[in-house]
Write a protein that binds this DNA or RNA. Structure first.
Length: 281
DNA sequence: AGCCAGGGTCTGC
DNA sequence: GCAGACCATGGC
């Protein structure tokens, strides 16, 4: 992969292991839109990013190199060698099948607070509606960053809204969980800045102090928002894979330190490929 | 109309 | 530790 500044854009070439469509559509990120001509618009860290992929070339529009290296290199996990990660995980037969169909998925390193809230909202919910609720939350309480676009709201802002104040976003029973998360982050019961210094187990337990955060939500936040690549979220799709091929005694340690990456490929394979092609038996 | 969705809590055994 | 009811909402 090479990074080139061309006029006002950043161009990545030879991106064998970065498929932006699959990476966005694999259920890790909710603040993006794809327009009909293949343009993706992402809102993250108070910025709006527009990007498009043609073959193995990706263009980041109106982006300067300093900003790219400071924020987006890390966000898109571009320092990680996915080739060797995939080779490492390929001892497993199901992963091999999945990685052929899900090639190019990368795990984004998103904002921790936003990721935590996003996956609190995700519980017992579907992806289109998760996106809607998050968008409404930002519109209601986020700081404007452009016309009609707001950043993700701070914990203080959500806390001051209260459960009643969140009513317009129609998050249902999850509103009280968002408030509890905001409260514990503001009062220090959960210090998100310390999570990175903890081991996986301690970080997971810390997030689970929040009401509405169980094992799965905690794992998603750790994997997509805090860089814990051994976190292995088990949602209904992943459980289907585990039931079909691995048995009830499956332990994520089977996949090692990058179990979370394996999980993401299996999730995408089951949800976006298998469930749409099989003739029901 | 009923089931499902990147689940968790609470209660009862 | 495990099963089941319940939780809001919208798409199909």
């Amino acid at each position: 992969m090479r990074i080139i500044q061309q006029n006002k854009d950043i161009i990545l070439t030879s991106c064998r292991h970065f498929d932006i469509k699959r990476s966005f559509e694999c259920g890790q990120c909710f603040r993006y839109e794809e327009s009909e001509d293949g343009l993706f618009t992402l809102i993250a860290f108070g910025n709006i990013v527009r990007l498009r992929q043609t073959g193995d070339t990706i263009i980041f529009y109106d982006m300067d190199k300093d900003e790219f290296e400071k924020i987006w290199l890390g966000y898109f996990d571009l320092d990680r060698d996915y080739e060797s990660v995939i080779t490492e995980l390929s001892f497993d037969e199901q992963f091999c099948l999945a990685s052929e169909q899900a090639c190019g998925i990368r795990i984004f390193r998103q904002d921790g607070w936003e990721t935590l809230c996003s996956f609190i909202i995700s519980q017992n919910n579907n992806i289109p509606r998760i996106k809607k609720i998050i968008s409404a939350l930002c519109g209601l309480l986020g700081e404007p960053i452009s016309t009609g676009v707001n950043a993700f709201p701070t914990a203080e802002s959500i806390l001051s809204a209260g459960v009643e104040g969140l009513a317009p976003i129609k998050s249902g029973f999850r509103a009280k969980y968002l408030i509890d998360a905001a409260e514990k982050v503001v009062n220090g019961t959960v210090n998100l800045n310390e999570l990175g210094r903890m081991d996986y187990k301690e970080a997971k337990e810390t997030l689970m102090r929040i009401k509405g955060v169980g094992e799965k939500v905690s794992d998603c936040a750790l994997l997509f928002g805090f860089g814990f690549h051994q976190a292995f979220p088990k949602d209904v799709w992943v459980k289907r894979v585990l039931d079909k091929y691995y048995g009830s005694d499956f332990d994520p340690n089977y996949f090692g330190e990058n179990a979370g990456i394996a999980q993401q490929y299996l999730f995408y394979y089951e949800r976006n490929i298998l469930s749409k092609t099989k003739t029901n038996t």
